[in-house]
Design a protein around this nucleic acid. Structure first.
Length: 214
DNA sequence: CGGCTGATGGACT
DNA sequence: GTCCATCAGCCGA
């Protein structure tokens, strides 16, 4: 299935109204931009993970809505940002209808616009290809934090002293060279990692995060 | 480049 | 208490 054009605002709901795995795969190659204070960082998505609702043992939504995951249960086209490991923010795009709790975790990307700002935000990055080569790295390069949880794509929201606008454009011709495999850190009772090969990445792309299965 | 390990705090049982 | 949808720093090659 070819990628649909996403150059309209707000996003067409039908683009998200299908299996979260198809949405995840079609997000590969898409361009996500985040603008604050007249400065924009854009990443070309190279790695994502699909997470289902209550039926998915690896999903934050598996035990129903809480204060933390509330925005996951909103309708499609919003950003779900959560805090993990005591220091990192990670960003997802909500894909399901209201109440479902499905979303796509943005795991890695290539910075294609706003390189200077991305470098400023990630001074510890060893090279430009590491600027967004991991979920927390990507969120940091884009400037996304808990302030932006629930933000609607294509919309704007007050965030601290400034504002944030997030926009998404699909790859013009789609991505054909994609691969998939087990998600990170998803195993144990209720479903092994192998049962959910819902991690997708662009084959051979140097910005894909260095994940090794246990 | 790749492997190993400590850091660090909120959510949830 | 325990569990994280992780990363930076350090080391060796």
């Amino acid at each position: 299935m070819p990628n649909l054009s996403l150059d309209v605002t707000p996003l067409p709901a039908e683009w998200f109204a299908r299996d979260v795995n198809e949405v995840a795969r079609d997000l590969l190659g898409a361009e996500l931009s985040a603008t604050t204070a007249e400065e924009t960082v854009t990443v070309r998505l190279t790695e994502v993970e699909a997470y289902g609702g209550a039926e998915d043992p690896g999903s934050h939504a598996r035990r129903g809505p809480t204060a933390r995951n509330a925005s996951m249960f909103a309708s499609a086209g919003r950003v779900y940002v959560y805090f993990t490991y005591g220091m990192h923010w990670c960003a997802n795009l909500v894909t399901g209808p209201e109440g479902e709790g499905s979303a796509v975790l943005l795991r890695a990307g290539e910075v294609i616009e706003g390189l200077e700002l991305a470098r400023r935000r990630r001074p510890s990055s060893r090279s430009d290809r590491d600027l967004a080569s991991g979920p927390a790295r990507l969120a940091k390069a884009l400037g996304l934090t808990g302030e932006h949880d629930g933000l609607e794509i294509g919309g704007a929201a007050a965030a601290g002293t400034g504002s944030m606008v997030v926009e998404l454009r699909a790859a013009p011709a789609g991505v054909t060279a994609w691969e998939r495999g087990p998600r990170t850190g998803v195993s144990g009772p209720g479903g092994s990692a192998a049962e959910f090969p819902w991690r997708y990445w662009i084959a051979g792309d140097p910005t894909v995060s260095r994940y090794r299965a246990a």
